[in-house]
């Protein structure tokens, strides 16, 4: 077992983990942050997407020990801080989620694109989200929601 301390959604967390524990398992099982989901556990689907020191990562490809000393943000944290409130509302208004299982990862990946500023083209949005699988929506509504948020943010600047 290895001691780690990290900041998760603004809270300092110290824990003792097995070296093989994935970050997403640590978040889900130890911290009960079940917003990050497991869709494949082999780095393909993006359902486990979280932010690690500001960069989006696949929580199933990062070990908890690798996050030692880092800042981790999950969908719960981004919701509480209000950082993605407009994007979440756009997803709701546009029905850009059905079962919602991909949604936390999709929101975090979308916000990663939106943070760069400007209004990305639909192709750019599709390209950026191509590491996040959605089996329900067919993507069109997700692209709409991200595009609408980008336009609204741009207009508000």
């Amino acid at each position: 077992m290895i001691d780690i301390s990290l900041t998760v959604n603004g809270e300092r967390v110290s824990a003792c983990v097995l070296p093989r524990t994935h970050l997403v398992d640590f978040l889900r099982e130890e911290l009960c942050l079940t917003g990050a989901h497991l869709g494949c556990e082999h780095g393909v689907c993006g359902a486990c997407t979280v932010r690690l020191d500001g960069e989006i990562v696949r929580g199933c490809l990062v070990l908890a020990v690798q996050a030692d000393g880092s800042v981790v943000e999950t969908v719960e944290g981004l919701s509480d801080s209000g950082e993605i409130a407009d994007l979440q509302q756009a997803f709701i208004d546009r029905n850009a989620l059905q079962c919602g299982f991909c949604t936390p990862g999709m929101l975090i990946a979308s916000q990663d694109l939106l943070k760069a500023g400007g209004v990305p083209s639909r192709e750019e949005i599709r390209e950026h989200l191509s590491g996040n699988y959605c089996r329900c929506t067919g993507y069109h509504a997700i692209v709409d929601a991200v595009e609408a948020t980008a336009k609204a943010r741009e207009a508000a600047r």
Binding site: T34, L38, I92, N95, L97, G100, F101
Partner: peptide, 17 residues
């Protein structure tokens, strides 16, 4: 808009998993 969607966008879904 569907009721209950805010929950799923905030990672507050309750899936059996």
């Amino acid at each position: 808009a569907r009721p209950g969607l805010a929950r799923l966008t905030q990672g507050r879904g309750e899936y059996v998993s």
